[in-house]
């Protein structure tokens, strides 16, 4: 069990990094990687929301949406899986709202630090993507939770690394058309090559 969880974690963080291998969450990655502080703040917010939403979405699929999932309510033939997307996105939006309210109540400092980024997370495709991948990969409850957490950590690693590189990049002279987005994409590509070297490691 533990070995399996370790394998899922290494895979999610390094080998199948949600950003560098699956291209999820690019928009906020590009927009918020100019300063390290914001990158770290957004990164942790994403880790947090992913850890909460992935298991909740697992429960929703298992007990409400899957074919025959409503057997506990006496409806064994009902299949609601076509409602998956709209349920997931509603859960994510609700969770982000909830996290915002809880943080506001119990940790105003963290809330103020993350403030602007929290609502943005609802439309971050890394969150919805992880839930959908969790579903296609057929993980159980604990595995889903670990998968959510470690996907978030992988995303955090990528955005903090990129923010660090972009801070240094400000002092370099680049062709005008390459400045900003262009060079960021190319550096992301180079980072992805680095992460690709983990492919083939068998745990």
């Amino acid at each position: 069990m533990l070995a399996e969880l370790f394998s899922i974690s290494t895979k999610a963080i390094f080998i199948e990094n949600i950003l560098l291998a699956n291209f999820l969450g690019m928009c906020s990655f590009l927009a918020c990687s100019k300063k390290i502080e914001t990158a770290i703040g957004l990164g942790f917010a994403v880790v947090f929301v992913l850890t909460v939403t992935t298991p909740v979405n697992w429960l929703i699929t298992e007990f409400l949406l899957k074919d025959g999932a409503l057997a506990w309510a006496g409806l064994p033939t009902v299949d609601l899986s076509f409602l998956q997307l709209i349920c997931y996105i509603a859960i994510i939006a609700a969770m982000v709202q909830l996290v915002e309210m809880i943080l506001d109540k119990f940790s105003p400092t963290l809330y103020n630090a993350l403030g602007i980024f929290l609502p943005l997370i609802a439309v971050n495709c890394a969150i919805l993507g992880t839930s959908l991948f969790m579903n296609t990969k057929g993980y159980a409850f604990v595995e889903s939770t670990v998968y959510g957490l470690t996907s978030g950590i992988g995303w955090l690693l990528a955005i903090v690394g990129m923010a660090a590189i972009r801070t240094k990049l400000q002092y370099s002279s680049l062709p005008a058309g390459l400045r900003g987005l262009g060079i960021t994409m190319i550096i992301t590509g180079l980072m992805a090559i680095g992460f690709m070297s983990f492919i083939g490691i068998n745990i």
Binding site: L20, A176, G177, G182, I183, M185, I193
Partner: peptide, 29 residues
């Protein structure tokens, strides 16, 4: 082979952005 893998996509799009921005004269500072 690199073009099929994720890094190839990033790098190719980077170059397309470069060409596109140069041709439409849109530059970031």
């Amino acid at each position: 082979g690199l073009m099929i893998t994720p890094p190839g996509a990033f790098i190719l799009l980077g170059f397309i952005i470069w060409i596109q921005r140069t041709s439409s004269k849109h530059f970031e500072d």
